[in-house]
Amino acid sequence: MADTFDRAAFWPEPAAFAQDIPGLSVRDLPELPQAYVSGDLAAFLAAGALAPAVGLLGLAQGDRYAVRLARHRLLVVGIEPDAGWNPGGWGVTPVGAGLAVVAVTGPRWRDFFARATPIDPDAASASAAFLLGDGLPAILTRHDAPDNLRLHVGRATLPALHDWLGDCLNAMAR
């Protein structure tokens, strides 16, 4: 049979990810409601009775919280307000299906972070957005506990994240 240049075999079919090593557990979370919000962020947070948006490795709590991404942009998690421009001065775009969320839990999160990014974990960053591993755009916060991290990546790039996670955890496990 002629070569069809089928790359299906080279790229394994995506599958859910869950792996535990001593000190760290990583697994995909179910889909979470999420939305980008831009504009008058203070007004949006007040209107939604939300706590101030957290930055990189910031501790977010509860089912509804905000994550700061840029000067005029945040990611709200746990709700998807109506899309479009709000007369209160902010714009909303739902992205709950567009951002996959991965939980990274355990006391060895620092070892994980040291492999994920050159950012100093002890130097706070107001923006939770960064480039992870091989250059994947990602968002990282803590959730409800200091050793409980939440990593958001574009859903289309989730299999690429899984490939990097596998190598990272295997290296950490040695």
């Binding site: 069809t4 240049f5 089928d6 790359r7 299906a8 790229w11 079919e13 995506p14 299906a97 091989d134 574009g154 859903r155 289309a156 790039t157 989730l158 299999p159 690429a160 490939d163």
Partner: peptide, 19 residues
């Protein structure tokens, strides 16, 4: 790494040659 379609499984099942 490439980005992956949400319906990739369906395309594979339908006999798609992927590139």
């Amino acid at each position: 790494p490439v980005k992956r379609l949400a319906l990739e499984s369906a395309h594979r099942a339908a006999g798609a040659v992927l590139r």
